[in-house]
Amino acid sequence: MDSPVGMERIHPLQNRRGASAHVGLTPAPPAIRIALRAGGDALSALSMAIGLDLPRAPKTAVVNGDGDRSVLWLGPDEWLLIDDGENGEAADLLARLAETGVLHSAVDVSHRNTAIMVTGEAAASVLAAGCPQDLSLKAFPVNACSRTVLGKIEVVIWRMADDMFRVECWRSFSDYAFAFLSEAAKDVR
């Protein structure tokens, strides 16, 4: 995503890397994130605007065909939209949503959150060091997502593949999240 002239976008986990033989920890690239809130009546119009069906089932994420935009169910009237920002800015998306005219709230939280990609065969067990949810494939299949707890912080965990999770957290907690996952990654048996 382009930065305004001369203005460097400084990611809170910039240059952080962590890995062990069984797990990789990588800061996710900057992204557009919209906290989207709406009632049931508005969903089809909003879905149309973003080109993605807002999932109505709990714990579910959907991804568009190009894989550059996804929406995560966080609550019965709450979604997190993540867009890689290649095709526009947050403001464009907000405007498109506003144009629907339906009752909703869309708030730019692109900079509030940051994310860590946890990859590899041990990804789930590294997360299990601090996440009390059942992360087995059976209980937490690919494209399951949930706001939950990791150690002492709140995170959103999204399983993007069998062995790949995206962990979203607020930026000031990202140091902790990264350090926690690094520590947990040492304990892969």
Partner: peptide, 16 residues
């Protein structure tokens, strides 16, 4: 206590 020692005892929040 597990991992919750030292730097992981409690998150340190720093502003941007």
């Amino acid at each position: 206590v597990g991992h919750s020692r030292g730097a992981l005892f409690d998150p340190v929040r720093k502003t941007a």
